[in-house]
Design a protein around this nucleic acid. Structure first.
Lengths: 188, 188
DNA sequence: CGTTATATTAACCGATCAGTACGCCATTCT
DNA sequence: AGAATGGCGTACTGATCGGTTAATATAACG
């Protein structure tokens, strides 16, 4: 099944938003970069906000699929998978075109908690916590939610550090810290 | 010398940028919110970017002064000060009008590493690391830089979590994690 | 009081913003 | 072949963007 014109638009818009930001990306620029006419865009999405939300939905799906799969590939045990997350992050940070977390940036530009874009960004992170918590429970953590929240802090911090390039290898810093936290939570 | 108009402008601009974002804040809106004429603004700052940089400089000074003082007040030992940072963060998160880290948001809107705004944001975080590292050394850490980087990850992660409200008490999650990392680094 | 320097209002600039109206052109149905 | 349909590019809308210009108002200082 060939990708529909709509999906093609969302995919390309996602890249442009990710690279240049949301407010900084005008619809005209989107037309120029995607080659899709403005009329078509507004036929699929009545407003820019709807297009942004669609892009975030796609990003959420893409990112989770990639991260979860990579964790499974790199880690053989539940504990190993949690630690492998940071190996996955390292790969992500090293990718050309890495520009930080799209949801963080979206929340930074649309700050109101009631804004659908902000809410969507928060949802993405909540889903990650649930996933981490499930694995933490299988790993035998006494308080899997607590461990999941701590690992999320390390992950988000590492992304910030990578985006700003304030440290050389934030993913491995986070990995080292995660090992210590895991040792504590799982009783070695 | 009477309080300069320039400082007044920067202070007010800082608040508006923090609350509404950078691209979303036009110069006309700044005129409306500060009561300062556009001509005066452009006399002090030749471009919007210069005003943003001045606001970030002020924010850097304000935030560091506040955080470092609070750490000294709440912690009596070097180790205690590092942990007290997260008590300080908790207070910050609870403040009305808390909207996340201004430098994160600035870096999110001005993504190019060569952009002065991005560089300024990264500088702020680097200074924090140095400060943490100094304290970590006084606390007797074997590798104070490494410990400082890990604590920064927790701090940045907590700010993200607080901004997005994805967990209830990110500052205390980070504090608990920090205690574990400190116990490991200081061999207690 | 007059001169000078500074701050103000307000209009204005071209460019761009999100969003819309319209006319061209190819396909399809008759 | 001819009419109708629907997708698409173009050009336009009023509003706002960052930034400038000119004339006026205010204050300081001799």
């Amino acid at each position: 099944m060939r990708p529909s014109k709509r999906d093609e638009l969302v995919e390309k818009a996602l890249l442009v938003f990710y690279r240049h930001g949301f407010h900084a990306t005008g619809m005209d620029k989107l037309v120029a970069e995607t080659g899709i006419s403005k009329t078509s865009m507004y036929k699929h999405f009545p407003a820019k906000e709807d297009l942004i939300l669609a892009a975030l939905t796609l990003r959420d799906k893409q990112f989770r699929r990639w991260l979860f799969r990579r964790m499974e590939q790199l880690g053989s045990t539940p504990r190993g998978q949690l630690i492998a997350m940071f190996d996955g992050l390292k790969e992500w940070f090293a990718q050309e075109g890495f520009q930080g977390c799209m949801f963080m940036k979206a929340a930074a530009e649309y700050q109101k908690f009631s804004d659908p874009i902000h809410m969507k960004s928060a949802d993405h992170k909540s889903i990650l916590i649930s996933y981490f918590s499930d694995i933490a429970q299988r790993a035998g953590a006494e308080d899997p939610d607590s461990l999941a929240r701590r690992l999320l802090l390390l992950k988000e911090g590492a992304i910030v550090a990578a985006q700003l390039r304030i440290t050389k290898n934030p993913a491995m810093d986070a990995k080292a810290a995660a090992k210590i936290l895991l040792a504590d939570a799982l009783g070695q």
